[in-house]
């Protein structure tokens, strides 16, 4: 395969022609959203340029602490995003479970992936570690948000059912029964669905990037397969943990359903 063809600056600038095109369409359609389009494009450009320089710096460091720091930063930003999306929808007891679930649910599969599957040398090699950490944390973030939201909704709308089950002698886990599996399904199904369409309906971004970079498609699919497995494991474990830790937050130690979500 040939080397990746470098994009000269003026050719990169030429790609902004598409932004101009959308701005013109927005103007003719009187959408009034011109600012939104160019601000988004500007932010995307600045963020990616900064990320490029940062990653370039990190890749040259090859230090375990640097790789771990980047992972923790990703997990931290993911948590802030999750808190924002779930604000006002969950109580503080459930909120407290998000950090341990996300941390364990993403770190363990990532460690397994780096040490056993990729067998990178060193295991924290930023070239592999950072992009894969980004994909697992990003997907787990979506999964945990969906799962937590569904769990909180179930305990709100299904209160009568859970309370009746407790009255009849059910343990809290049995009383919550179906709601736990529903929340797990709701959170994991998007990942499963994306696996179903992969390679037929769309080519995943990572694989496309590798092919553009000159990697043989046969080699890039291997990476895509193992990464999808890692994402599946990470999303599954993160959601499982939040459900197992989270449903207990709705009960006290006397197996009583708490009045409020918090």
């Amino acid at each position: 395969m040939s080397e990746l063809q470098s994009i000269e600056i003026w050719r990169m600038a030429a790609s902004y022609f598409f932004l101009v095109l959308v701005l013109l369409m927005s103007h003719f359609l009187k959408l009034g959203r011109g600012n939104e389009f160019w601000v988004s494009a500007l932010r995307m450009t600045i963020q990616l340029v900064l990320a490029g320089y940062l990653l370039d710096l990190v890749f040259r460091q090859q230090h375990v602490l640097v790789s771990l720091l980047v992972l923790f930063a990703m997990q931290g930003f993911a948590l802030v995003t999750i808190y924002g999306r779930l604000k006002g929808k969950i109580g503080h007891r459930l909120k407290n479970m998000l950090a341990p679930a996300l941390f364990v649910g993403t770190t363990l599969p990532l460690a397994y992936f780096m040490i056993v599957v990729i067998a990178a040398d060193p295991w924290y090699a930023p070239r592999y570690f950072i992009p894969i950490a980004g994909m697992t944390v990003g997907n787990s973030m979506t999964g945990i948000t969906l799962g937590t939201e569904r769990l909180a909704q179930a305990f709100c709308s299904g209160r009568a059912r859970i309370e009746e089950s407790l009255m009849l002698g059910a343990s809290p886990r049995a009383a919550a029964g179906n709601y736990l599996s529903d929340a797990f399904n709701a959170a994991v199904i998007p990942t499963v669905n994306s696996m179903l369409g992969m390679g037929i309906i769309f080519l995943p971004g990572m694989m496309t990037g590798q092919i553009l970079a000159g990697v043989s498609p046969l080699n890039s699919i291997k990476y895509q397969i193992v990464i999808m497995m890692c994402i599946l494991g990470s999303v599954g474990l993160t959601v499982y943990l939040i459900i197992q830790l989270g449903f207990r937050s709705f009960f006290n130690d006397r197996a009583q359903l708490l009045e409020e979500a918090d």
Binding site: E163, E164, L168, G169, A175
Partner: peptide
């Protein structure tokens, strides 16, 4: 304690499924 002193609420929640499913479920709870 709740298995020894079972409670039935004012408007009992009836689980989806058949009458038999409901009875089976409460036995499973216990």
């Amino acid at each position: 304690l709740r298995r020894k002193a079972v409670m039935v609420s004012h408007s009992p929640y009836i689980f989806p499924g058949t009458v038999y499913d409901n009875i089976l479920l409460v036995f499973n709870f216990n």
